[in-house]
């Protein structure tokens, strides 16, 4: 995973509320067995409009997306994060996210920034003409007009994003604790073992 610290550039001012994962990547794009190339299907229904925000020349390769409340709601498909990543998005800014989406985003090196609606509205205004800067280390979003918004992020997620860390390797360090838990479980709740085992 590519570490993420500072991202600066164009932000796509989508602004819509309740953008669900079917909108981010429609179901017919899920029929793959690999992770690459999903960007082509990203926001397909919105991009059917020739004047859509995503395909405007100035927004090509924009690293930031600004959205409304409850971004990424709906299906748990991680393809949504892969599609955003493949599109070049490294940061999403919105007032709230679905839990599953924000988890998937972080696992794929995408930072979900939570800011109040008023701050999001201001950033949408700025994004129409100017770039936006996001600094994960200092947890701030700034604009060329001296706007400065700070955001909260779970420290573990921050560490993973800053270091580009793979979660499985981190968990494997706790292998001993998992062994101990399994032993305790087998003693205390032996009936948890599925009854039919081959």
């Amino acid at each position: 995973m590519t570490p993420l610290e500072k991202v600066e550039g164009r932000a796509i001012p989508l602004g819509l509320k309740n953008v669900d994962t079917d909108v981010i990547i429609p179901a017919h794009w899920l029929k793959t067995t690999s992770r690459e190339g999903m960007g082509r299907g990203a926001f397909e229904s919105l991009r059917a409009d020739p004047d859509n925000l995503f395909d405007r020349p100035e927004n090509k390769g924009a690293p930031i997306l600004i959205a409304g409340d409850n971004f990424g709601c709906g299906s748990s498909r991680e393809h949504a994060a892969w599609a955003l990543g493949d599109l070049g998005i490294r940061v999403v800014i919105a007032p709230s996210y679905s839990d599953i989406f924000s988890g998937n985003a972080v696992k794929n090196g995408i930072l979900p920034v939570v800011l109040p609606q008023a701050a999001v509205d201001r950033l949408i205004e700025v994004a129409a003409t100017d770039p936006i800067q996001v600094d994960l280390d200092t947890q701030t979003v700034t604009t060329p007009f001296q706007d400065r918004f700070t955001f909260e992020i779970d420290p573990f997620r921050k560490m993973c994003l800053l270091g580009g860390l793979d979660e499985i390797s981190l968990t494997e360090k706790s292998g001993g604790a998992i062994d101990a838990y399994e032993a305790k479980l087998a003693a205390e709740r032996p009936w948890l073992q599925p009854a039919l085992t081959e």
Partner: peptide, 12 residues
């Protein structure tokens, strides 16, 4: 859960 988590659960 998403696919990364599926992999995480399979492994750990």
């Amino acid at each position: 859960i998403g696919t990364s988590e599926v992999e995480h659960v399979l492994a750990t």
